[in-house]
Write a protein that binds this DNA or RNA. Structure first.
Length: 888
DNA sequence: GAGCTCACG
DNA sequence: ACGTACGTGAGCTCA
C-alpha cells in the first residue's frame, strides 16, 4: 500500500453544489462587507471532511478557466443554453481560491480546458507515480476516471455526503465499466452540457447497448446485425451525434498542464492570513476551530477552550460549598435517549466559578448534594427540565428550584432546528467550547462513554455552557416578548409532563395478548386467501411485491405511482375494491397487521415492570408548539374504527373500581380561528352554540334553516372547515371529499363570502409572515418561515399555508398547555388522588379513583374551558368509563 | 437510512 | 401556469 495520496477536487462543480446546498441560507450567510458566503462555508465544511477521511499528501483543486474550451471547436453549442452562474456565487469564487491558498492547497486552471481535463491528466500522472488518487466532484462525468488507483467521490445531498465510485460501484449503478460510461453517455447525450446523443435513448437503453457491444464504435460495426426497430433507425440516423458525443464526453487525460505532482504537495497553513480571512467573512465556527488547531499543533480538533473542573468523590464532597446566591447549573448524564430507562453515567455541577464532575450518580444521594437539589430556594440552571426531573426522581431525589431550561429557551427562541443535543444547540449560538453527544459518545452500536478525561471535559463543558448562554437566551426571549410563554407556560408544563410520564398509564397485558391471539388467526386466514387468489406466496408487507402481484400479474389498473413504483395505498386500493375480491382482503390484512404489529406487539413491549406504560412527551420538537409522544406514541392509539378502538380496552385505571376520564375541547382550532380572524359570522355561530359544521353547511349551500342540512352537506361543510384551517386549495378539497374541482372552488368561494374576515385573516397571516419572517400564536410562540420568500412556487405556497395554519394549531397548543398547568394545580390544591395521565392535542385523560369521579366531572371541563379568554366560548366535553374504550 | 404505509389530532 | 391540505411516530422492506 502506498502512503502517497493525491486528492483532486473539481472546484467549480463542488462550489456550485455547495452554493445550492445552502441556498436557503443565502441571506443568513453574508460577511460584514455584504458578500455572500454560503458557498465558501459549505465548501470549507466539505473540504474538512474530505481532508480528514482521505488524509492526502498532495492536493490540487482544479477550476474551469472560462466558457470557451477546445470542446467548442468540435461543437459550437457545447454547454450552450446554460444559465449564467448567479452573481451571488461568482462573487464567492475568488474567495474560495484565496481560502485554498491560505490552507496551503494548490489551485489551478488552464485556458481552453475544463477542470475535468486537468483532473484527468493529474489522476493519470499520479497513478503512474504510484499515488492513491481520490477525485472529489459534484458531477458524475468524472466517474469515468474510476480505476484501481482512483476513487471518484461524487457529492450527494448538497455536499453533506459523498458517494464513492470504484469500478465495482460503477458497475452496480450503471451496469458498465468506467470507460464504457463514456460510450454510454455518447449514446444518451447530456442535457446539461447541451449535446443530444441518439434520439429516444436514455440511460437504461444506453447501458444495455453498451453492455452488449462494449463501445459506440463496435456497436456501429455490428449495426447491420441488429433487428429492425425504431431504435435501430434512430441509431443510424444519429450516428454523427453519437460519435461527436463520445468525443465531447471523453476527458482529456493528456492536457498540457503546467503543474507537477511536486507542486501539489500540501503546504503549511498560513494561520495569520486564514484568521484574517475568517474574520472578514465572519466565520466564527472556523475561527474557534483555528484557535485550537494552532494550539494543538494541528492535532485532532478539541474544544477551543476547556474548562477547569474538580472530580468529586465521597471523600471530598465538602468541597461543594453552600452556594448562597451564586449561580448554580446542573447536568445529569445518562446514556440512552429514553430517560425512563437510560443508565446513569454521572453528573456535573457548576457553582459560581467552580465546576465539579463525577461518574458516580449515587453521590447525588449524599445529603449535601441531595439537599442542594431539593432546595427550592436554590435556583438551578439545567438543560431539559423534564429529563432532569424524571432522572433525579429515579434516584429518589425530588428536584426543586429547576428554574432555567436552556433547551426550552432555545426551542422558543427558534425552533427551526429541532435538535435536543446541548452541543448542537450551543453551536447555533456560536459557542463551540462544547461538543455534541454524537461526537463524544458515537452513534448506533458504538455508543459508549469515552475515557475519563474526555468524558469529564464534556460534562464540565455542558454545565459551563448552560451557564454561559443563559443571559443571551433570556435576552432573546425578552426581545421576542416570549418571557411569559417561557415562564408561565413552558417551564411549568415541563413539570406537569414529567409527573404524567412518571405516573404512566396502566395497561392490561392479558387483554392485549388475547386480542393478539384472535388477530393472529384472522390474519392467517386472510393471508391464505390472498395467496390462493394471487396464485403464489409473497411478502404481503412489501409494497413492491404486492404491486407486482396486483398490477402486473392480475393486471389491475395502476391508479397512482410513487417514486419507486406502483402505489398500493388505501386510497388506491379503495378504488380497486370492486375489481377484485383480493383487494378487499388486502385492505383487511393491512388493517389487522397494523393493529398487530404497532399496537399489540408494540405496546406489549413497552409495558414496564410496574404494569404501566411511560411514554415520553417531546416538548421541544414540533414546529407549531404541539407535543409529540414517543416510546411508545400514545397520541395515535386507534379510535376511528371499532376494531382498532378495541385496543383502548387495555388502558385501564390504576385503582380498583376507578375510572378513565377523558375531556376534549370541541372544535378548538375553529374557535381559535374565529377568535384570531375576528370573523363576526363565525363568532356568532360559536356564541349561539350552533353545530358549526351544520352552520357552515347552511352558509355555503345558502339554506334557510338547519333542517335543510342533509348529512352529506354537513360532511362536505366539515371538510371545508378543516380545509380552511390547513390553508385550503380547491384541488385538495376536491380530492378529499371526491367532488369536482370546480365544485370545490364554488364551496370555497361561498365560504369566503359568508365568512369574509376569515379570508382577510388568511391574507394578513401571509403578509405578516413576509414582513416579520415568522408566524406567531396568541402567546407569542414563533415559527420562522424563511421559505415565504422562495422563488419556487411550491415551496413558497407551502410556507404560505403554514403561515395560516401555525398560529391556529399553535394557539390551540398554547391553550391546552395552560389548561394542563391549571389542572395540575387544581388537583394538588384539592389533594386529589386523580392523576392526569395523557394529553392528545385537544384532549386530556385522567386516572380517577371511584370516589373522586364526581369532583372530576365538575372541575376538569371548568378548568379547560377557562384556560384562556377568547372572543368565543371554549367548550370541553367529558366522557368516562371502566377503561379508555368506554370513556367515549 | 430512505421510502411507503398508516395510526392519531 | 405552477401542484396541492396542517402537525406528528412507528413498523416494515429493501438497498
Amino acid at each position: 500500500m502506498t502512503d502517497k495520496k493525491l486528492l483532486l477536487i473539481d472546484g467549480n462543480s463542488v462550489a456550485f453544489r455547495a452554493f445550492y446546498a445552502l441556498y436557503r441560507q443565502l441571506d443568513n450567510f453574508t460577511s460584514p462587507d455584504g458578500l455572500h458566503t454560503n458557498a465558501i462555508y459549505a465548501f470549507k465544511n466539505m473540504l474538512d471532511v474530505v481532508l480528514r477521511d482521505v488524509d492526502p499528501t498532495n492536493v490540487l483543486v482544479a477550476f474551469d478557466a472560462g466558457k470557451i474550451t477546445f470542446r467548442n471547436k468540435m461543437y459550437d453549442d457545447y454547454k450552450g443554453g446554460r444559465a449564467k452562474t448567479p452573481s451571488e456565487l461568482s462573487e464567492q469564487m475568488p474567495i474560495i481560491k484565496e481560502l485554498l491558498a491560505d490552507l496551503g492547497i494548490k489551485s489551478y486552471e488552464l485556458p481552453n480546458y475544463e477542470a475535468d481535463d486537468i483532473i484527468g491528466t493529474m489522476a493519470k500522472k499520479g497513478a503512474e507515480k504510484d499515488f492513491q488518487v481520490t477525485v472529489v466532484t459534484g458531477d458524475r462525468d468524472l466517474t469515468q476516471l474510476a480505476s484501481d488507483h482512483t476513487t471518484v467521490m461524487v457529492t450527494k445531498k448538497g455536499v453533506g455526503e459523498l458517494e464513492a465510485y470504484t469500478p465495482e460501484h460503477m458497475k452496480e449503478v450503471n451496469g458498465v465499466t468506467p470507460t464504457e460510461f463514456i460510450d454510454m453517455k455518447a449514446l444518451m447525450g447530456d442535457s446539461s452540457d447541451n449535446y443530444p446523443g441518439v434520439e429516444k435513448i436514455g440511460p437504461k437503453t444506453a447501458s444495455k447497448l453498451i453492455q452488449k457491444y462494449g463501445s459506440v464504435e463496435n456497436l456501429y460495426d455490428h449495426i447491420d446485425e441488429m433487428k429492425k426497430s425504431k431504435m435501430k433507425e434512430n441509431l443510424i440516423k444519429d450516428k454523427d451525434k453519437a460519435l461527436l458525443g463520445k468525443k465531447l464526453a471523453t476527458i482529456n487525460c493528456d492536457s498540457p498542464i503546467e503543474v507537477s505532482l511536486e507542486d501539489t504537495k500540501l503546504q503549511a497553513i498560513n494561520y495569520e492570513q486564514l484568521r484574517q480571512l475568517y474574520e472578514r467573512l465572519n466565520f466564527r465556527k472556523f475561527l474557534a476551530q483555528l484557535n485550537n488547531e494552532e494550539a494543538a499543533g494541528d492535532e485532532t480538533p478539541s474544544p477551543a477552550e476547556s474548562y477547569q473542573y474538580q472530580v468529586l468523590t465521597k471523600d471530598n464532597l465538602d468541597l461543594v460549598v453552600n452556594p448562597d446566591g451564586q449561580e448554580v447549573s446542573f447536568y445529569l448524564a445518562m446514556l440512552g435517549e429514553n430517560y425512563h430507562l437510560a443508565s446513569f453515567e454521572g453528573f456535573s455541577l457548576k457553582i459560581g466559578n467552580q465546576i465539579y464532575v463525577s461518574k458516580d450518580s449515587n453521590l447525588l444521594k449524599e445529603s449535601s448534594l441531595q439537599s442542594l437539589l431539593e432546595d427550592k430556594n436554590i435556583s438551578k440552571n439545567v438543560f431539559d427540565i423534564k429529563r432532569t426531573y424524571v432522572g433525579l426522581h429515579r434516584l429518589d431525589i425530588e428536584a426543586e428550584g429547576l428554574n432555567y431550561d436552556m433547551l426550552l429557551a432555545s426551542y422558543l427562541v427558534n425552533n427551526e432546528n429541532n435538535s435536543n443535543d446541548l452541543g448542537e444547540i450551543a453551536h447555533l449560538y456560536d459557542e463551540y467550547s462544547v461538543k455534541t453527544d454524537l461526537e463524544v459518545y458515537g452513534k448506533g452500536k458504538k455508543t459508549a462513554i469515552p475515557e475519563d478525561n474526555e468524558f469529564f471535559k464534556h460534562l464540565a463543558a455542558k454545565v459551563a455552557v448552560i451557564d454561559k448562554l443563559k443571559p443571551l437566551l433570556l435576552n432573546k426571549l425578552k426581545e421576542h416578548e416570549q418571557d411569559d410563554l417561557y415562564e408561565t407556560i413552558e417551564i411549568p408544563v415541563a413539570f406537569v409532563l414529567a409527573k404524567m410520564e412518571i405516573v404512566g398509564m396502566k395497561v392490561e397485558a392479558p387483554v392485549l395478548i388475547q386480542m393478539g391471539n384472535d388477530l393472529a388467526v384472522k390474519i392467517d386466514e386472510l393471508e391464505k386467501k390472498i395467496y390462493s387468489q394471487a396464485g403464489e406466496e409473497f411478502n404481503l408487507n412489501s409494497p413492491k411485491q404486492l404491486g407486482h402481484i396486483l398490477f402486473e400479474k392480475l393486471n389491475l389498473p395502476p391508479i397512482k405511482k410513487t417514486k419507486t413504483g406502483y402505489s398500493t395505498s388505501v386510497e388506491v386500493l379503495e378504488q380497486l375494491r370492486r375489481k377484485s375480491p383480493i383487494v378487499s382482503e388486502i385492505l383487511d390484512y393491512r388493517q389487522l397487521s397494523k393493529l398487530q404489529s404497532t399496537y399489540i406487539k408494540g405496546l406489549l413491549e413497552c409495558i414496564q415492570s410496574d404494569g404501566r406504560i411511560h411514554t415520553r412527551y417531546l416538548q421541544t420538537l414540533t414546529a407549531t408548539g404541539r407535543l409529540s409522544s414517543v416510546d411508545p406514541n400514545l397520541q395515535n392509539i386507534p379510535t376511528r374504527t371499532d376494531e382498532g378502538k378495541q385496543i383502548r380496552k387495555a388502558f385501564v385505571p390504576s385503582t380498583e373500581d376507578g375510572y378513565i376520564f377523558s375531556c376534549d375541547y370541541s372544535q378548538v382550532e375553529l374557535r381559535v380561528l374565529a377568535h384570531v380572524s375576528g370573523d363576526e359570522a363565525m363568532q356568532e355561530a360559536f356564541k349561539s352554540g350552533y353545530d358549526i359544521h351544520a352552520h357552515t353547511a347552511m352558509k355555503i349551500f345558502h339554506l334557510a334553516s338547519p333542517q335543510e342540512v342533509t348529512p352529506l352537506m354537513r360532511r362536505h361543510a366539515k371538510a371545508v372547515n378543516f380545509g380552511i384551517v390547513y390553508g385550503i386549495s380547491d384541488y385538495g378539497l376536491s380530492k378529499n371529499i371526491g367532488i369536482s374541482r370546480k365544485q370545490a372552488k364554488q364551496f370555497i368561494d361561498n365560504y369566503f363570502e359568508q365568512y369574509p374576515q376569515v379570508h382577510e385573516y388568511m391574507d394578513k397571516a401571509i403578509k405578516l409572515a413576509r414582513e416579520k419572517g415568522y408566524a406567531e400564536t396568541i402567546m407569542h410562540r414563533r415559527r420562522y418561515l424563511p421559505d415565504i420568500h422562495a422563488k419556487n412556487f411550491n415551496v413558497r405556497s407551502f410556507a404560505e399555508r403554514t403561515a395560516i395554519n401555525s398560529p391556529i394549531q399553535g394557539s390551540a397548543a398554547d391553550i391546552i398547555k395552560i389548561a394542563m398547568i391549571n389542572m395540575q394545580n387544581k388537583l394538588d390544591e384539592l389533594h386529589l388522588k386523580t392523576k392526569m395521565v395523557l394529553q392528545v392535542h385537544d384532549e386530556l385523560i385522567f386516572d380517577v379513583p371511584k370516589d373522586e369521579l364526581e369532583t372530576i366531572q365538575k372541575i376538569v371541563p371548568q378548568v379547560m374551558q377557562s384556560a384562556v379568554q377568547l372572543d368565543v366560548p371554549l367548550i370541553a366535553d367529558s366522557n368516562w368509563g371502566k377503561n379508555w374504550y368506554d370513556a367515549k
